[in-house]
Computed example of a mutant assay.
Amino acid sequence: MTATIHKIGGNRAPSLEPMFKLVAPGMNKVNAVILDRMQSEIPLIPELAGHLIAGGGKRMRPMLTLACAQLLDYPGDRHHKLAAAVEFIHTATLLHDDVVDGSDMRRGKTAANLIFGNPAAVLVGDFLFSRSFELMVEDGSLKVLKILSNASAVIAEGEVNQLTAQRQISTTEEKYLEIIGSKTAALFAAACRIAAVVAESGDAQEMSLDAYGRNLGIAFQLVDDAIDYVSDGATMGKDSGDDFRDGKVTLPVILAHIRGNADEQKFWRDAMLGNRISDADLKHARTLLQAHNAIDDTLDRARHYGQRAIDAIAHFPNGEAKSALTEAVEFAIARAY
């Protein structure tokens, strides 16, 4: 995989374009469901939800549901509503996260909570969670309901786990991986797995797609946490350095702290406690991360999990869907380059 991170097919950077093309007809149906179900007689609800839902974003999670269904040659249409449910869960968590984090930007726009207020953002997030569960119930599968409801609970647990680890420089790599496995990877895994349930493909296929999504989700978050220190707000769609200023102890910080001398470790302790958060401090943090290869090693781990994702679908027949799913992994990692 390492050899294909920068170029695929010899001269092309990895892209989500193959997946966009693969799932375009299905995503039109998913988007129609999303537009319909975000409506309410209370005008503020569609206005606030639309600010985020219509405000960009790759819709990667629902696209994964559709792509996995195509990988299994599923001929039905149940997955369209379920993919919309997945996107509602994701959007609800974003609304809640921005309130918790005090974020200024989301998807390159002003965060909804800054425009509409924290109470409205939380309540509309609750509304979208409720809509997602309506869609699950309409599907009629208790197994699908169990998978997606469990993922919702695990995501919430992951967010609380992250909150308790915030500003704790003693956070271990194991604890960090546990957090991102819950708050990010759980929904990736569920989005992929439900395709095998509706296609009635059996437990083995379910778990293969679960493993694909889970490992992709971990790789995706590792890259996000790395580029928070090396990218800019326009590229990321949120403020650069947010994690640093919020005292989020992500893997780059964990690695730099462990490898640093006494003075450097004190800097990280002070920074994570919120006492060293100026632009100059952020610049110093980036220097330390570079000196201790913390960003490179975080991306190495992302490549490792990316390879695990690709390996999880190796036994599926070759074709457009498998190729698009493979390139989605490569794209997720190439975002850092």
Rank of each mutant, 00 (worst) to 15 (best):
F188S: 10
A186I: 12
E159Y: 07
A186L: 05
A189R: 05
I147A: 07
V154M: 07
Y176M: 10
L177M: 03
R167G: 06
T184Y: 04
I179R: 02
A185W: 10
K146Q: 12
A185D: 02
A153N: 01
A151D: 02
K146Y: 11
L177W: 12
G181Y: 11
T171M: 12
T172N: 02
S152E: 05
Q166H: 03
E173F: 00
T164I: 15
A186F: 03
S182V: 00
Q162R: 10
V160E: 01
L187K: 11
L163P: 12
A189H: 09
L187W: 05
S152N: 13
T172D: 04
I179K: 06
Q168F: 09
E159L: 03
F188I: 12
T171V: 09
F188M: 09
S152A: 14
A151M: 06
K183A: 03
Q162K: 01
K146T: 01
S182Y: 14
E157V: 04
A185V: 14
S170K: 08
E174V: 15
A153R: 06
A189D: 05
E174L: 15
E157C: 12
L148T: 14
L187I: 15
E157M: 03
T171H: 11
Q162T: 14
E178P: 08
E173A: 07
S149C: 06
I169K: 02
Q162W: 09
L177T: 02
Q166I: 14
V160F: 13
A153P: 15
V154T: 14
E157A: 10
Q166T: 15
T171A: 09
G158C: 08
K183S: 03
A151E: 04
Y176W: 11
I155Y: 05
T184F: 07
F188L: 01
S170D: 13
F188Y: 02
I179T: 04
A165I: 00
A165D: 08
Q162C: 04
Q166P: 09
S170E: 13
E173K: 00
S152M: 14
G158H: 08
E173H: 01
E159P: 00
I180G: 12
L163A: 11
Q168H: 13
T164D: 11
Q168W: 10
S170W: 00
A186R: 00
I179C: 02
S149L: 05
Q162G: 00
N150Q: 14
L187F: 01
E157K: 06
